[in-house]
């Protein structure tokens, strides 16, 4: 799958080589390799505990790998360069938002943290983009799960990152909120952002991606381009892959 050494090659948004991660005796990642070109959308599936969140934490420099290398936007994740942090945005099932502050206060705070000039103007802009401007002075604590997730998008894109990591963004959303989130992710992808999304939702995961991967027990067990995957037969393929790799 991978044929060249890691380098800060601007052609690749993400390049991962032999990433391993141990938590004591537990091996969460057992040698992960892949590359993602700029503007590509990867949907990463896998059972609970497969290592998907750990991989995202490593790629966003929130955790260090035990071994292996990874470059994100050309920067080594081990060095956690501030410039690399400016290139990435993370949307997780946790919102990273202060419940007692308003959307405007939250997003303005993060905008300041990213060193954005006119933080307030930019905050209003992204809140408007996710359709929450009418409620930008209300406390975040009063928001529904769907609104929180939209506000999470505003937080993640306030610094206009070129790479987005989405860790199970559809968790806990109803159909309507999922549809709104899908439209917003679609818009982010159209803007030529590189996106890595982990999800358990096959239909949501397959409808936008360019690449499909399945992670089982800390390894990539399947890596295909989206064109090669039949959405109708994907569930069977997934279950077979998980069962096969689970035995190894």
């Amino acid at each position: 799958m991978i044929d060249s050494k890691p380098s800060p090659n601007p052609g690749h948004a993400i390049r991962v080589r032999g990433i391993r991660k141990h938590f004591g005796h537990l091996e969460a990642l057992r040698g992960v390799d892949f590359e993602l070109k700029k503007g590509e959308f990867l949907s990463l599936f896998g059972p609970n505990g497969a290592g998907k969140t750990t991989l995202i934490r490593i790629l966003s420099a929130l955790a260090r790998p035990s071994s292996g290398t990874a470059t994100v936007a050309g920067y080594d994740v081990m060095e956690a360069d501030p410039e690399m942090r400016r290139e990435i945005g993370v949307i997780s099932h946790a919102s990273f938002l202060y419940a007692d502050l308003s959307p405007l206060e939250n997003i303005r705070f993060y905008a300041t943290m990213y060193g954005i000039e006119n933080a307030e103007t930019r905050a209003v802009e992204v809140i408007d983009e996710v359709g929450l401007k009418p409620r930008m002075h209300d406390r975040v604590r009063t928001f529904s799960r769907g609104m929180l997730q939209r506000l999470s998008i505003a937080r993640a894109i306030v610094h206009n990152p070129s790479i987005l990591f989405l860790d199970e963004p559809y968790t806990g959303l109803d159909q309507h909120a999922s549809e709104i989130l899908k439209d917003q992710l679609q818009a982010l992808h159209t803007d030529q952002r590189t996106i890595l999304m982990t999800t358990h939702d096959f239909s949501r995961g397959l409808e936008m991606c360019d690449r499909v991967a399945v992670m089982v027990r800390g390894k990539l067990a399947l890596w295909e381009s989206a064109e090669q995957v039949d959405p109708a037969g994907f569930e069977r393929l997934y279950l077979e892959t998980v069962e096969r790799e689970g035995k190894n």
Binding site: L62, S92, M113
Partner: peptide
């Protein structure tokens, strides 16, 4: 504890701070 609610500390750690 306030920073841990909703993973806010992680959000801070993601920023170039």
């Amino acid at each position: 504890t306030l920073e841990k609610e909703n993973g806010c500390l992680q959000g801070l750690m993601l920023a170039p701070v």
